[in-house]
């Protein structure tokens, strides 16, 4: 019974996030952290950040972090429920819009959607970054490393994995030097 309730809660927490992921998975990370760590107390901050790191290094979309959470909390059933919850609502919406689009392509729709949603996506992504960093161990070191990585991503032609590995090494070095 308890397990069933957990699966239902997993679905109810993750499914609304699906429709909030405007501009991609990065925009719901802040909300995800609030829900899973502060409201539901399913994970500690440390485990959340560990999972975030894993989801960025593992193959596939970063949003699969919820699959890992589902598995961690309720085994393979949890993984399946979490994955369906995060993909089904937004996918239904996309299929419905694709259906209408196919029968009546209309550039005005596209322009209006992009104009209206792009500012929200940018705001949510940046807000998620601030939430993640203010909960990360290391305080100012974390902020400095993140900013340097962000600037490097725009100026140096390196892949995301290389940048993450280099950033992580610099972070560990600074953390060790600061004691």
């Amino acid at each position: 019974m308890k397990d069933d309730n957990l699966l239902v809660s997993l679905f109810l927490v993750f499914a609304p996030l699906s429709l909030m992921a405007i501009g991609g998975g990065a925009s719901i990370l802040g909300e995800l952290q609030h829900s899973v760590v502060d409201n539901q107390h399913w994970l500690t901050n440390k485990t959340f950040l560990d999972m975030f790191a894993i989801s960025r290094v593992a193959p596939g979309p970063g949003t699969l972090i919820v699959t890992l959470m589902g598995w961690h909390l309720a085994g393979w059933a949890g993984a399946i429920v979490a994955t369906i919850a995060i993909f089904a609502p937004s996918s239904l919406l996309v299929i419905v819009i694709a259906h209408f689009w196919h029968s009546r392509p209309n550039a005005a729709w596209q322009g209006a959607l992009i104009y209206g949603l792009a500012p929200l996506a940018a705001g949510l992504v940046l807000s998620s970054v601030f939430t993640l960093l203010s909960n990360a161990k290391g305080g100012w070191i974390a902020w400095c490393v993140a900013i340097v990585v962000a600037v490097a991503a725009r100026t140096i032609r390196l892949g995301p994995l290389t940048l993450m590995a280099a950033g992580s090494l610099v972070f560990c070095g600074l953390l060790w030097a600061a004691g």
């Binding site: 990065a26 960025r56 290094v57 960093l133 161990k137 290391g138 962000a150 560990c172 953390l175």
Partner: peptide
Amino acid sequence: AIGAILVGLAVAAAGLSLSVGYLAMRYACV
């Protein structure tokens, strides 16, 4: 040690998101 590397990876990944968010902001704010 592995814990610290993971935090470092999370922080660096947040940096990548920061860069994406900044670009998205520049693109969206017209």
